[in-house]
Design a protein around this nucleic acid. Sequence first.
DNA 1: GAGACTTGTCACAATTGCGTCACATTGACC
DNA 2: GGTCAATGTGACGCAATTGTGACAAGTCTC
Lengths: 230, 230
Amino acid sequence: MATILIVDDEEDIRDLIAMNLQREAYDILEAADGLQAVKIARKKVPDLILLDLMLPEKDGYGVFQDLKSDSRTRDIPVIMLTARGKLDERITGLALGADDYVSKPFSPKELMLRIKNVLRRVQDYPAGALSENGDFKFDKNQLKFYLCGEEIDLTSTEFKLLLFLIESPNAPQERGDLLRRVWGYNDLIQTRTLDTHIKRLREKLGSHGSQIETIRSVGYQFNSNDQPST
Amino acid sequence: MATILIVDDEEDIRDLIAMNLQREAYDILEAADGLQAVKIARKKVPDLILLDLMLPEKDGYGVFQDLKSDSRTRDIPVIMLTARGKLDERITGLALGADDYVSKPFSPKELMLRIKNVLRRVQDYPAGALSENGDFKFDKNQLKFYLCGEEIDLTSTEFKLLLFLIESPNAPQERGDLLRRVWGYNDLIQTRTLDTHIKRLREKLGSHGSQIETIRSVGYQFNSNDQPST
DNA sequence: GAGACTTGTCACAATTGCGTCACATTGACC
DNA sequence: GGTCAATGTGACGCAATTGTGACAAGTCTC
């Protein structure tokens, strides 16, 4: 379930959003002014904040800055709502770091779409969808792999193999296990396929390729560079 | 002039609407049942559809679904009319994607207001109907597509396909999902239709065609050139 | 009903992933 | 240092996937 904080004093917008979203099991928090919003956001961390820039008491941008300056709320995506769709306001909002920007009047459909788009980023990544180790980062949903922030194109076999190695770092993985888990081979067959793929992986990893170590007569092992937290 | 399609078999409502609206230069189309409504809507694309859920022949929701599953009418705003103002019905309607919902009995003034509200969104603020990514721009109301400001003629299938890809940029869209969302295929059927349409799209996109990337054994992905706002 | 347009399917070409092989290199043990 | 098994490496070929052009059926327009 996603939690959304709505910062707005107009009831109809709250109703609209509540009606559209609650059916899909969203948890709605409400706040009529800025201070309260920041307070709620810090207490129960929402997945998304819907911020109306036309607040009665406080400047919407100020609330936004407050949220962004607190580490507990800094990384929550914010969708801004404004009465006017002026370009310079839009630019200001996006420049400040808003994730999206919707001008009133808007259709329910549009708002829902934007909310879902933003939430998709959050919800598509349930715990475990991202796997990370040092400079190695996996996006298991999108089947993408990043090395030092740069996307590296891996084939699906390479992806599975590297992921399996990295999820058990600093421990040798036996050939038989690798063949079973990555290729689905159940019999202990004799094949050089594994070695060839290790080679191709090392190539694609460049200087980091050496982190895949050969354990003679056993298999392969990924050596993490991560410092164990002391 | 705005064009409104009224799907209703109660003459008084039609009269009411006609009287109120024609003075302000609206074009009224009429349909007494679902099939006819869908037919008219496809032929002469209205700006707004007023759909009575209490139809004699067909289920109003069914008509709605029909309209929404056709690319030519999918993005026309729909106001639902119902005799009952139950909240769950209202929610069902809005969840399905209706733009507004009016319960009978209603005052002419209220209905006019809602009609004008919806039309204003479409006519003055087409923002919700616009989808944009880099040089790619969609007008979902007019079903038009612009590349670098120039209109490119897309068929409705091409439009749906490209829009779906672009609304989830930089992420692979699986063949199955595309076939389901664009073609409505629910079974995992084996077809080359998708590939053929991708090819036709790439052709029409010219040098930008390469932004549609093939993800082997998975599907296709649209690569955005947009810089993420920092 | 003629003609233009859209769209699904097919056959064939091009591409890509991947398993295997031959040979080179390495490392353990004598 | 010699020997042998295990692994590294580059090349090759098959099979699956995708690109491409043509075609025919269906739909809409006039």
